[in-house]
Structures are given as C-alpha cells and as structure tokens.
Amino acid sequence: MLPHVTFEGVGHTYETQDGKNVCALDNINFSIKKGEFVAVLGPSGCGKSTLLRLLAGLFPATKGQVSIYDYPVAAPQLNTGIVFQKPTLLPWKNVLENVLFPIQYKQGRVSRKNKESAANMLNMVRLSEFSEHMPHQLSGGMQQRVGIARALLMDPEILIMDEPFSALDALTREQMGFELLDIWRQKPKTVLFITHSISEAVLLADKVLVLSPRPAHIIADITISLPRPRSLNTINTPEFSAYTDRIRQLIYHPNTNARSSVSGDKND
C-alpha cells in the first residue's frame, strides 16, 4: 500500500537573524502508513519542530521532498490539523468559538452543521459544559484539549502534534496521553507526534523515530508492538520498559549502542 506520508532525503538549512546558516535536518527518510501513529523523539532544539512544519507545508524543505500520497507538499494542506506546544487559543473568543475558529476564519461564517460537529468535538474532549467559557478560565490541560478539538474539527486526514503536552504537569500529561489514544481510536488519523518524553512516545506510538542532536538525522526507527488499547497497565509491563530502556540507550550513548547493535546483528 502506498504510504500516506513520505520524507525522502529531507534536509533543511535556515538562516538565523545574524546571518548564520543553521542545518536543522539532515537526510531524513521515513514514511507513515495511513492511520499510523508515529512519534518523533529527540533532544530539545534538534529540529523536531522543523520536521513538523515541513509536513504542514509552512515552508519548503531546502533538500529532498516531503510528500503526501506521492504528491509533494508545496503549500499548507487543508487536510492537516496542527496542535501546537502551547494551546494558543484566541483570548477574545470562548471555547466553542475557538474550536470553530478555523472554519470561521476560512469561510467567513459557520453553518449549523459546523456548530454541531464542534459540539461533538467538545463532547469528545470532555469539555461540553465549558463551551461558553473563556480560555483564561480553563486549566492548561483543558486549553490543550480545546486545541485538539480545534485541530480535529475539519476532520483532517493527518494530525500533526508539536509536543502538545509538554507544557502540562506530569499527572495531566499522562492523562492527556490516554485521552489522545481514546480520541485516536474513535477518529483514526495519521499522526505525527513530536515529543521529548521517551515514555510518552512508547506509550502512544506505533513507531518511534529517534533523532540525533542537530543537524538531526534519524538514529533509530523502532516499531512499538505493544498491544492496543494501551492503558496504565501497559506502562508496567516489561516490554514497555524494554522499549524505553533501549531508546534511552540510543539517545545517551548513540555510538556505543550503534556498535553493540551492529555486533548484535552479526550474532543473530
């Protein structure tokens, strides 16, 4: 089957304000199948966000090609929804209006059907009673759920999430992870999920791409074959720890690990 999203030899170099060229990404190759949940894991500032913005079509890659179903991504795609690190809701609109914002903004008006689907979305992220609230009246986790509802409203095929839970406290963060899995089960999407939390990546994804420090390249492409639906119990299984340990090794000792894995392959 044709992969949904493909990165082929993608590299990106950008110019900083003081005129220096920074190479953020280097020779990135991977593909995502339709409905697959892929987490991208890497140290801070390694170019994860650049990767995401390339898929969103916010700017073109300086090298290689990003494509959706073999069509190169040259401009923003309307069938991608983005959830940002910060919820970035509009402070002058209430929760419902914020969820409807993309449609209101794009079409200039909202139909009754749009309002209904927005109400459904809010129901799904368990914020129905808060639709008339203003963003500042919500907690960080609730704001981010509004952000997720906003991204899902237009029923995009691809959901791009840029460290969506990193601004939340640890407890809320874990809870949001399970909620996201729940939403994803109800509305299967192709997900590209950026994170710097190893356990979050393992818990959520079908596949974890581990990036190196800048210029980022993929140092490992690990398929997570933990059974779904995943729950709190998943975290306690030895398989889960095995995955997190292996990824931690890859991140902290990339060289030794590369060698050992090569020798391991030989032994196999």
């Binding site: 969103a56 923003p76 983005i82 940002f84 910060k86 509009l90």
Partner: peptide, 27 residues
Amino acid sequence: TPEELIELSKSLKASAVKEVWHIRLPY
C-alpha cells in the same frame, strides 16, 4: 501575537489582510 497563531493562519491559507484583521489586531 504567538507565532503558532500566525502558522495556523498560514496553514489555513489566509490572506495577510485576514491575518491582521482577525488575529494580529485583536491580539
């Protein structure tokens, strides 16, 4: 104005006028 909102606006292929009127000015 948060960069993310400008990106959201771009991802919706909105014009510069819209961006200023609906996002930047209210902000």
